[in-house]
């Protein structure tokens, strides 16, 4: 009898210790804008818009536009990573950063269009090229 009670308690304690597996949604905390700290000294992102472009076939494409204002002459590298509704990355044409030069006081606008209509979110990366 003692053995059964002991075994039951052991099983219960093991079950109690088991933690629920974390679902992917609890892990997602993805900022839309990721700016390299070094970039902050020379420029700032003043606007960040997104809209869905309606397509003739009834679907729509996500488009992102952002504006960067330079406080001094600077180089900028940027890229957008696209994600579908499940949070999975959707491949675009290339993976590399796009480079841009900014003059002091200049505000430049950049635009990127999602590679597929299933894209629902994005992450914009800004950094200083080496």
């Amino acid at each position: 009898m003692k053995r059964i009670v002991f075994a039951s308690m052991l099983v219960l304690s093991l079950v109690g210790c088991a933690s629920q597996p974390e679902t992917s949604s609890s892990l997602i905390d993805r900022p839309e804008l990721k700016v390299d700290p070094e970039v902050v000294y020379t420029m700032g992102v003043t606007e960040l818009f997104q809209e869905r472009l309606a397509q003739p076939d009834g679907e729509s494409l996500l488009q992102v536009q952002f504006a960067v204002e330079a406080r001094s002459d600077a180089e900028l590298a940027w890229k957008v990573t696209w994600f579908d509704a499940s949070g999975m990355m959707v491949k675009g044409v290339g993976e590399s950063y796009r480079k841009a030069s900014l003059l002091t006081g200049q505000t430049r606008y950049f635009k990127a269009t999602a590679p597929h209509s299933r894209v629902v979110s994005y992450q914009l990366h800004l950094r200083e090229p080496q």
Partner: peptide, 24 residues
């Protein structure tokens, strides 16, 4: 390769955004 990638990215994004490759 970076130049080709830039040209291809610009072209494809513009094609998609313009709706030119949407078959009515």
């Amino acid at each position: 390769y970076r130049d080709f990638e830039k040209a291809a990215t610009d072209a494809v994004e513009d094609m998609l955004a313009s709706g030119a490759v949407n078959n009515p």
